[in-house]
Design a protein around this nucleic acid. Structure first.
Length: 468
DNA sequence: CCTGGAGTTGTCCTA
DNA sequence: TTAGGACAACTCCAG
């Protein structure tokens, strides 16, 4: 009987997983493993999530998940030598460094008569296959969507997980103990526990709640941070705790605008991976070269105020505090804070990308990079340079009653709706009536919106005239 | 190769 | 109050 390693990476689930399907169909004896490589960059919030998720996966695998710390090639080679492994199975990753690592491993173990097989369960489609007719990659979302993803139907794997045949060897008596010593988490992670349930069961529950309560009215409601119309699935998807096909399938028969808009959001994730795969420098270099000469400002005070949610613009501060407290931020607000950092503060998008990477539980290398480049205008299909969000206008439009602001910026809770979007409009006397003293209870705006807007317009305008 | 239409998410000013 | 145009010009994409 062939002995195989299932190497879990970004697919921490047993349901609808091509690797598991292969093992059952081909009657493999399997050793499921996870390798924690301390040298790979993982954000702080992601580490917390990963830890919880692995505990959950271990349960789904009846306590058979073996956890290792170290360089994957060494760990795998040891296992191959000690257990007579003939196959290593995994779902593909799409970051250049990861692809290289996988290829290296493939070559190393080949000398030991071990075969590596790559599956694609992390995306709806393998980005290798999503090219235009002329075989070059799409750079615009709409044609990408129309040609590649519209009117698709998805099939799920159908197997009984009871049939997984584990190799009988215990590596970790208690995975949670080992995790405590390998993946260091920080104090502030404690509060994440009350917000999230990482793992397959938690993911399934979120999907169910979304389909029954969130989807109806999604196309409008998704823009409202004060409402509950988003799926909250992003982190579960990031770690592969739920199959992206399963999510797509759950809405494919619903012929409403809401369902299509939601499905399009899934395809935006595909588009980000498509870009990452075909333009690996997406993570650290402007996709549009002409931005390499752009003079960003280096203002550490502004950056810190932004990170802490102390900019004096309530919608920005609510978003940034939601992020820090919960590891998540509503999508509309991500755009508003992103535009503010890049356009009003003129701070390089990489600082936003880094902060999000560290604090978001759903931090995803493709989506995070592509989206920051999008909002900065340096990316594919990017926002025109003159599209600068006004945080006050956006706040009035999408959080009209200030419910979202009051939740995360409680010092403003007594300010009436009319002024909550910009308290500095009020005079000191009225503010004191509402229990706020600007400058001590809540900051004055750190920059003037119209001045910084004009500044950004002229800086970006100069650039658009220069040759790329 | 040429051509024409289109391109996630906005804001502000003017009439 | 509201609707329309300016904000630029470019690149992408399909035929």
């Amino acid at each position: 009987m062939v002995k195989s390693i299932i190497w879990f990476r970004n697919d921490l689930r047993v349901s609808d997983n091509a690797v598991i399907n292969y093992c059952i169909e081909n009657k493999r004896k399997v050793l499921p493993i996870y390798i924690y490589d301390p040298f790979t960059s993982l954000g702080s919030a992601s580490k917390w999530w990963l830890k919880q998720s692995l505990i959950s996966l271990d349960k789904s695998l009846k306590g058979s998940l073996a956890l290792f710390e170290g360089e994957p090639n060494k760990v795998l080679l040891d296992l191959v030598n000690n257990h007579g492994i003939k196959e290593i199975l995994w779902n593909a990753r799409y970051l250049k460094d990861d692809i290289n690592q996988d290829n290296d491993i493939k070559n190393i173990v080949k000398n030991h008569d071990v075969n590596c097989i790559t599956f694609h369960s992390c995306l709806l489609k393998n980005p290798q296959n999503t090219l235009k007719k002329d075989a070059t990659p799409f750079k615009v979302y709409t044609p990408f969507y129309k040609q590649q993803y519209q009117d698709m139907t998805y099939e799920l794997f159908n197997y009984n997980t009871e049939e997984i045949d584990f190799i009988d060897c215990k590596y970790n008596e208690q995975i949670s103990k080992i995790l405590d010593s390998t993946i260091k988490t920080e104090k502030w992670h404690q509060k994440l526990l009350s917000e999230w349930t990482p793992g397959e069961a938690g993911a399934q529950k979120k999907l169910k709640v979304f389909l029954s309560d969130g989807l109806n009215g999604y196309s409008e409601g998704r823009n409202r941070p004060d409402k509950q119309h988003t799926s909250m699935l992003s982190a579960h998807i990031r770690f592969g705790e739920i199959s992206i096909r399963e999510i797509a399938k759950s809405v494919e028969k619903i012929k409403t605008e809401d369902a299509e808009v939601f499905y399009k959001e899934l395809v935006w994730r595909e588009f980000s991976y498509h870009l990452l795969y075909h333009f690996p420098h997406l993570v650290d270099t402007n996709l549009q070269k002409k931005f390499d000469n752009f003079k960003w400002l280096d203002n550490q005070d502004h950056l810190k105020s932004w990170q802490k949610g102390m900019t004096g613009y309530p919608i920005i501060d609510a978003g940034m505090r939601q992020l820090y407290e919960t590891g998540y931020m509503h999508n509309r607000v991500r755009m508003i804070v992103g535009s503010f950092l890049v356009k009003n503060l003129l701070i390089h998008w990489k600082y936003g990308q880094e902060w999000f990477w560290d604090t978001l539980v759903d931090a995803d290398i493709a989506s995070n990079s592509a989206s920051w480049q999008w909002v900065a205008g340096t990316g594919a299909d990017a926002a025109p340079y003159f599209r600068i969000f006004n945080p006050v206008t956006q706040s009035k439009k999408f959080d009209p009653d200030g419910d979202y602001i009051r939740k995360y910026v409680p010092e403003l809770k007594n300010i009436p709706n009319k002024y909550i979007h910009l308290p500095s409009e009020l005079d000191d006397k009225s503010l004191i009536e509402y229990g706020v003293k600007l400058g001590s209870d809540y900051p004055y705006p750190i920059v003037d919106l119209s001045i910084t807007r004009e500044r950004a317009l002229s800086a970006f305008k100069k650039l658009s005239k220069s040759t790329s």
